[in-house]
Structures are given as structure tokens and as C-alpha cells.
Design a protein around this nucleic acid. Structure first.
Lengths: 230, 230, 230, 230
DNA sequence: TATGAATGAGCATTCATTCAT
DNA sequence: TATGAATGAATGCTCATTCAT
């Protein structure tokens, strides 16, 4: 019946303020005293809730992770087909950054490369969300929707790497570009690749063609015919 | 005839030491005094060459950028075909990280997200190298090797985003995985995409299919027949 | 009922210590750390009370200014006659230096010539005290006690300039002379001047005499007769 | 025949530059490196001529002292009458400040209160110039031009203290006032004093009158009659 | 004699963290 | 439990001075 306690609200206010100030001035330049002032608590109170400044930083994703868990995973399960799910995942992943640029700044610029963060429960939660993408990709492979020789880890790196990349550019450019519009092209490119199927494969010398052939010989014998025909 | 001057060697030694220590302990935790000590120069000498600690950080990529310019661009021009060039680019890009993990740490964890760095000549040099990939992709589109509806910015984000991603994972995992082995799979995936062409496109509902159709209608009318036939 | 708070006492102790050390070793040679140590506070506490070292320096006169305001001005108002007041002022002014040589050192050697200090409230307070002397002089002119052609600014410069001068000499000589004994002679000289009235004014050529005559013609016609008679 | 050597010119250029920069930014804020740069010599050269930064500071008055010695003393000896000489001295003293505000700044704000400077030959030269004023005053007492009970030290403090005072005010006000115009009023005031001889001495109670009487009883018995008559 | 790169001691200032109230 | 004054370790940076060339 009773909502969040006073202390919980206070804690959330601290995290919200920290997120904003960390993102605005950088984690190093931001001071605990400034966060306390803006959150309208004393510095001591911050240390009641967080063991130190870095610990406060590590708690910032918490709220967003929970939100994604509640909303994201639920909706994705309703979508049929791995391709559709993958696209939806990319949207949800990007949208969280788009709607919360301060969160994006902190995750992409401060937490991704922080070894200590990788030991926290906060990172485990994010990891679970990443694994969910792996599951989607594997589901697509199993269903035959995706090529059988697809490596889920690689595809995940492509999707998330590209989104991280364009998000950082978006953040650094003062959010002047349209982030959400890049989601579809990224997913499209990953879906279909960039090679032009209209072009005769033998038209030009290419170690790529040979690499591809080699890969297919190993993993997709069914395609051999077409390959030979090409 | 005379090689680098004493002062130049000294400066290089400072940068080399800074790179190592920044990467080892993090930029913030590293102290100028420690770098001076390990580089066997006085603290004052560091400030003779660099205006401040951050400026020293910003000079770290210089050497690598020059090296890449000399070697990378030269060799890439000898390779025929955009696909081959793109693969080679990915190799060179990854190899620099692989051979110089400290450099990778600094570029990926400290410089990519630093707004001040983006104002330096050091970033401009890196930018030129990025643009080179864009040129390769556009070359492939013009030659017909790549789909005409390919977006160079997106492909670049996919390639570099994925490599950055796997490199950070590699660094954070203590370099326990094999970084170079991920290059080919990444390039392969970008080349061919992940959709299984053996599967009937109408087998499942997919807004992706519709998106693809829309894109093709606009840009590759010649393919329509095949599309309709498939 | 409650006296000064703990924090106020602490602040006063910092100022007292700073005054002593600044005077002893010079403002530049004195270190904040030394002041902290001697005042038995941490360096951080100094910066809780003063924005920086110079700001601490600027707060040193505060206490003395207040004391003078309370005591000096009050007593001076009870004295009758501008000449008496002027003498008393000179005594009070000198006595403060005499009783507080460290304060004298700081005011005369460090603050008088500091442009930044002139922007502080501390200087305004001192200024008010200076103005009080101007008022005394003007009062003497109005009452006829002082010559009507007296320039208050000049007289103030004479009195205070002479006292500052002898005080600096006193300080630099290791306080070996008797500072207070110079007050009366200074005031006496300003009162009566140095010219010997017994000597015939025409006894020697003097552009001074002409200057004097010119001044009197302008402002004290009543004296002309005597002048001519003399 | 041969003028100053190259080295002498160099040394003078260093002193001139130091004077300007010390005055502009303050001795502490000025750096040896900046002085070297502006004087177009190397830092090392400065240390060829001066043992350290303070020593350079102490050499700044040299040139002016010599100039004053050459011009000042020579001209003063041509003037007849102590009063005239005293006025001339005040003019010369003030004019040097007026014509060379940087020199004034350094002497009044940095050297007057520097104990180390008092050990240098530079200070001895200035001291000689001060003594010259004492001699003038004593000459006036002996000739009967000045009151016999005049204290030369006090008069010197009055004249020079007042001029120093107004010069510092002039410097701190950005030289917006007219410094030279204050010389005559200062000398006039010292000559004649500020008491109004027209006013009946008994018209008001005054410990000053009593002080004066006491002083006269001691030293100028000749005046007793006039005093009693008054 | 002149140079100016190199030195390194020295210091003001900051700020995460603590703890008495 | 909350406060915020007090702490003091930690460090980037300066600059007078030196000395190899």
C-alpha cells in the first residue's frame, strides 16, 4: 500500500542528480559536495546510501535496467520471428539512450570500460539484457530465419557496437543528429549484408569470394549448388 | 643523416611511458610525477613538452596515427576491390589494437568520449583514417560491388563499432580471447548479412521484409522481378 | 549569553596566526600549511573560511578596524577642539601600530600597495577611518582653529605619511627606537610649521615667501596688514 | 671614447625590462623567464649579471640614484636658502616618481619594506640622498631660517612620508590625479603649519597650547614674551 | 660568454571521506 | 538517521636556478 519510503525517494534523488552532474561535467570533475547540494541532502547522507563516489556511479544504471527488464523483455516476447525481435531489440536499446542521454553518457563513456563495474550486480543486470540478444539471434538460427553459420557473439557486437558508436557520435555532436533514424539502417545492413547479389561473383578477383566459399563449404553444403552455379 | 634529436627521443619516451601508465592505472589514477619518474625525466620536462596532463594524453595517438598513415593507406591502395580493401582495413584497424593494447585502452576508453580531444589535431588525424573507410565503402558502391542502397556511415559504424566492442571485451577480459580471429567473422557478416536466403520470405510475417521491399522499390528496380519471383 | 562560537574562535585563531607568520617571514615565504599547523587546524579548514591565501591576508585588518571603530571614534568625539582631536587621532593611529607591530607590518608593507585589497570591505573600513581624520581637519578649518587655506588631503598625507614612515623605520630597525615619542613632534611640526617667525621675511630671497604671499592674497585678505607690517 | 660595452647595455636592458615587468605584474607574479624573453636575452644571461631574482630587483634603483646624484645634488647646491632648497628637494624627489612611475612602484611598494634591501649598496645610495635632506633642514636651523627646535628627522619624515603617501595614492588610482601639484601644498604646510595665528590662543581649551608652551619654554625662551603677550 | 633545456623542490588548492553533534 | 564542518592526503603545476653545449 505504502509507496517508496522517504529514504528511498531520497536515494533515488541522489542517483538522479548524480547521473545529471556526472554526465554534464564528467565523473572526475563532478564533486560529491555538488551532488549533495543539488540533491538537497548533506554529503553525509550520500555516504549513508553509497560506500563511495564510484559506488554511487555504479548504481546509476540500476533504475534503467529494471525499467528495461519490465518493459523490454515483456514486449519482445510478444513479437514473432527472430528478425522482428532483433529489430525491436535494437529499437529498445537505442531508445533508452535516446530518451536518457545522461544515462547513455555514463554507460558508454564511464561504465563500459570500468573493470570494477564489471564486478557489480549492476553489470550483471546489463549482461542479462545483452544475453537476451544472443538468445534472439540463436532463436533465429535455430528457426532457419538466419544463416546457420551465423555467430551470435559477432552479430551482437555488430548491432550493439554500431548503436554504441552512433550514440556516442550523437552525444558528442550535441545531439544534433537524429539518433533513432539510424536504427533501421543498422538492422537492415546486418540483415542483408552489403554485397550486391546482382554482380557476377567472378567479375573481379576477390579473396573475399574465396573466403566466403571456404566458409560455406564448411557450414552450408546446401548452398553449394547455387555457389557452383554462380 | 642525424636521427631524432635527444629532445625528440625524450619526448617520445615520455609519451611511451604515459601510454603505459595511463593504460595500466587509468588516466585519473596515474600521476605526472610517476610518469616522470618512469620516463627518467623530471616533472618539469614533461611540462616543457606538454601543456598539461590532458595534453599529454592527447598526444598519445600521434605516433600510431602516423604509422598507420604511412603503412595502412599505402598498402590499402595496392589492394583491388572494395571488399578486399574493407577486409584489409578491418585487419589493419584491429591489428593496431591487438599489437598495442595500451594504445587501444587509451583510444577506446579515454579519448573516444572526450570532447576536448575532438578539438585536437590528433583527432583530426584519426578522423582522416575513419574517412578512408568511408571512401572504400563508397568506392564499392560506385563499382557495383556493394549494394547501391548501402549507407557508408552505417557500414562504417558496423565495422568499427563491432571491432571497438570486441576489442574492449578483449581488453577487459585480460586479453584472454583471440582478438584477431574476430575480424573475419565481423567482415563476413557485414558482407553477406545474417538472413538465410534459403528460407521463403513469406514464411513468416516480418516488417523487415516490408522494409526491404520498400528500399528496393526505391533504389533497385531491376531486382523487382527476382524479388517478386522469390 | 553565549560568546563566540567554536567556529568563530577557530577563524580568529587562523587570522591571528596568519598575521604573526605573514609578518615574521613575509606573505610570500609563509605557507598555508605552516599557518594551519601553528593555528592547530587543518589546511582544509583555512579554505573553509577564506577563499585563498590572499583572501586570508585581506581579513587581517578586520579585527583592528573594528576595535578602532569602537574605541577610537567614540573617544575622539569626546575631545574638544580640532587640534586636540588631531593629536589624539595621531596617538590612536600610532598606538595601534605600536601595540601590534605584526598588524603594522602587514598593513604598511603588504596591504597599502595591494590593488586587490582596495576592492575589499576591509579597505573600506580603513578608508572610513582615514576620512575621519579629514573630518577633524575640516572641522578645525571651519572653527577657525586651522588656517582657512589648509588642504585636508595634504594635512592627512603629512600626518599619516609621517607616521607610516617612522613606523616602517621602527619596524625595520627591530623596534629599537621609541615609536610613541615621535607622535608629538610630528603633530607639533604640522601644527606650527618649521619657519622661524622671528626671522625677517625679507632677509633672504625666497620663492617660498612669494608663494605664501600669493596664497594669502587669495584667501586671507585680513592678514595682509600684518603681513605687510611684518 | 668608447661608450658602454655590449655587456653593459645588455645589463641595462635587463634592469629596464625587470623594472617594467615587476611594476606591471608585481615582483612575485613576474617570472625571470618572462623578463629574459622581453629583454631579448636568455635566462642564463640574467644569472650572469645578477645572483638571483631578488638581486635583480635590488639593482633597479641604481640608475635612478646615480641620475639624482648627478642632477639633484648639483642643482640643489646652487639654490640659496634652506627653505628654497627644501622645496626644490621635494620637487626633485617627487618628479623622479612622476617621470618614472615604474621606479616609484618598485621603491615604494617593494623595496621600502624589504629588510634585505637595506643591506645593499643600492639602499646606501638612497640613504645618502635622504641624508641630504637632513642636511638641508639642519642648514635651515643653523641659519635661523627654521625654528631652532625643529627635529630634522621629523621634518624629513613629514616631507617624504607625505610625498610617498600621495605617490602611492597616485599610482593606485591609475595616475589619474596630478601628482606634481601636491608638492607645493605639502611644502607650504610644513613651512607654516596649520594653526591659525589670527585666532586667540586662549579662545578654547587646548592641551595643544599647553604642549606648545611647554616645548617653547624648553627651547625658545626668546619667544616667551610674545607667547605671554598673545 | 651566452644559451635555453632540464631540473625538482615547493606549494596552493581540492575534495572524498569522516564523525561529533 | 541526518548533518556539514573538519580533515589532510594527494597532486598538478610553476619557476628560480643550474649546467652541458
Amino acid at each position: 500500500m505504502s509507496g517508496p519510503t522517504k529514504a528511498e525517494l531520497r536515494k533515488e534523488r541522489i542517483i538522479d542528480t548524480a547521473r545529471r552532474i556526472f554526465a554534464e561535467k564528467g565523473v572526475h570533475a563532478a564533486t560529491v559536495s555538488e551532488i549533495a547540494q543539488e540533491a538537497k541532502v548533506s554529503e553525509g547522507t550520500i555516504y549513508e546510501h553509497f560506500s563511495n563516489k564510484e559506488n554511487l556511479l555504479f548504481h546509476i544504471p540500476e533504475h534503467f535496467t529494471q525499467r528495461r527488464q519490465r518493459i523490454g523483455v515483456y514486449h519482445l516476447k510478444l513479437i514473432q520471428g527472430a528478425a522482428n525481435k532483433l529489430r525491436a531489440y535494437a529499437y529498445i536499446y537505442t531508445e533508452l539512450f535516446h530518451e536518457n542521454p545522461d544515462y547513455a553518457t555514463i554507460v558508454l563513456l564511464y561504465l563500459k570500460g570500468n573493470a570494477n563495474f564489471r564486478q557489480t550486480p549492476g553489470y550483471q543486470a546489463i549482461r542479462n539484457w545483452f544475453r537476451f540478444l544472443t538468445e534472439i539471434i540463436n532463436e533465429g538460427i535455430e528457426s532457419g530465419e538466419f544463416r546457420p553459420n551465423v555467430d551470435a557473439y559477432i552479430v551482437r557486437a555488430l548491432i550493439m557496437g554500431a548503436i554504441d558508436q552512433v550514440t556516442v557520435n550523437w552525444l558528442m555532436s550535441g545531439k544534433s543528429t537524429n539518433l533513432m533514424e539510424t536504427v533501421d539502417p543498422i538492422v537492415d545492413a546486418v540483415m542483408e549484408g552489403i554485397l550486391n547479389p546482382e554482380v557476377d561473383e567472378d567479375a573481379h578477383w576477390s579473396n573475399w569470394r574465396r573466403t566466403k566459399a571456404r566458409l560455406r563449404n564448411k557450414t552450408i553444403p546446401a548452398k553449394e549448388k547455387k555457389e557452383q552455379a554462380g
